[in-house]
Design a protein around this nucleic acid. Structure first.
Lengths: 285, 285
DNA sequence: TTGCTCCTCACGTCACGTGAGGTGGC
DNA sequence: TTGCTCCTCACGTCACGTGAGGTGGC
């Protein structure tokens, strides 16, 4: 029989760990002196302790390990837990690999130049909008100004969130752009709504996007192309591909439009282009 | 200006996170109402928030991020932090990959058959021992019994730890085995010590082993070969190679020797045989 | 005025590390 | 008897999630 200190030296585990395993019932000493509280471990407990350590090395939590060491566990349940852990490790590997590559990329470029692209998931939203074709970005911009101005009073009486511009054209040509403008709503509304003789707004749903690459841009339309370029390079370098129409969310858009005060979030629905399954099979050794 | 709730929706961060970033000074609201405590964020704070999120995605801690966003930081310091994180990610990748493979191995074999091999680092120890050649394992066993018995009374007067047997022979042949037997001491001792007419014990140092593969075995010499086999298979499957002589640590060794009560820890100094540098360069994409 | 949002505690998470303060065995 | 070891609290870790309980603005 060994006291905590001796046993910890033999097994090369900290005393605190042994105490903790006792506390959570994972490994009780063979005998505990009721009066002094001294723990006495037997050499025969080493196999159990080593199994605990071996399982811990696989990244399992102590709770999971405790379950795996119970008597009434089936081989199937054990396999299930191992399979779960395996897929979690795979997740973690992919994430770390992404991070690793992003850091490599950052190291190649001055930090100030790197755009702060953030991936988010975006839920479906109620979207009160109109869709049309325009012949130039300039036309589009004027249409945006017109709509926002016209809808200003409407916005005051309804709960309106942000103004969003969507570019549907897959290939951007300068003289025919398929665009959609509108507002995100929280409440339900009878649609369509006529805002002028020329334009009707209809209510539809902006689809949810599981992976949206976003980049905030400070400034008006004159400089947004810079942000687009940076985002595009980021996506290419990190091996993401487009999966849907891009969005521009006007977060701050004062009247009269002062370019310096405009804050836009550029959004691209994306998906990773690398082949995950390929990775683990391609590893050396 | 946006309240916490609105800002959290725009940036798709939880309110609690914004509160926490405020609390630790990472991102203070543009304005905080002194009386109500209400936080007001400006759209112009989105770039900073997104930089925080982008850096968080790299696995940096909020403390590190806070440092990176300070004004007086140099490009070199930033590079240093990124390089550190890069190497940590590499560590983490290697570890997860090991775990992943070990689980794959476990899944191929019934759980009960898998030996609980544990890797530890072992420090250098004072070793009072004798070294000799023996002609069979049986001879070695008898010598061990003799030594342990002879040193029993010695052990009572000195602080003696465990009895350890080391096999130096690189190729085990049945008729010429180079072995070393002795005790680990904690105190210093004048060496050599004569324990009988035939044997002198000398004090030397058991070298430290950074990576020791260990396996606990219950039972006497008749069954240790099973443990050796299991350990060998584990090492091969996990791609470890031997780097030094094997040890047997007698953790429990009663008199008279009752095989069932013997507890031995088998130790192999090992090192990983896979090429780490190769891994990251061999990845697809 | 009624809701909705905001706020500030404060506990819980996970597996211990690290003292503080006190007792027990050789 | 003096040290050394043991013990039990109990806080700290990291980045929030999750209520509880209470106030403020439209």
């Amino acid at each position: 029989m060994f006291l905590t200190g001796e046993f910890s030296k033999i097994a090369r585990v900290s005393k605190r760990s042994l105490q903790y395993y006792d506390e959570i019932g994972l490994l009780k000493p063979a005998y505990t002196d009721a009066q002094s509280g001294y723990r006495y471990y037997s050499a025969r407990q080493l196999p159990r302790l080593n199994r605990i350590l071996a399982l811990k090395e696989l990244g399992l939590t102590l709770q999971q390990i405790a379950r795996m060491l119970e008597d009434d566990i089936s081989e199937d349940e054990i396999r299930g837990m191992l399979l779960m852990q395996k897929s979690q490790l795979e997740q973690s590997l992919m994430q770390d690999l992404q991070r690793f590559r992003r850091i490599e990329l950052l190291l190649q470029h001055p930090t100030e130049q790197a755009p702060d692209v953030v991936l988010k998931s975006v839920p479906a939203q109620r979207f009160l909008s109109m869709r049309t074709h325009i012949s130039s970005l300039q036309t589009g911009w004027e249409l945006i100004l017109y709509m926002v101005r016209t809808l200003a009073q409407f916005a005051e009486t309804r709960s309106i969130n942000h103004f969003i511009a969507i570019t549907h054209a897959e290939t951007l040509t300068d003289d025919d752009i398929d665009v959609e403008f509108g507002f995100v709503l929280e409440e339900n509304i009878d649609s369509p709504i006529t805002i002028s003789e020329d334009y009707d707004l209809t209510l539809n749903e902006l689809p949810a996007v599981p992976t949206m690459a976003t980049l905030v841009h400070l400034g008006g339309p004159a400089t947004t192309n810079l942000a687009y370029g940076a985002l595009g390079m980021w996506l290419e370098a990190n091996n993401y591909g487009f999966t849907g129409p891009q969005r521009e969310v006007f977060i701050e858009f004062p009247f009269p439009a002062n370019d310096e005060d405009i804050v836009i979030e550029i959004q691209f629905p994306v998906k990773p282009m690398h082949n995950h399954d390929l990775l683990l099979s391609a590893l050396p050794d």
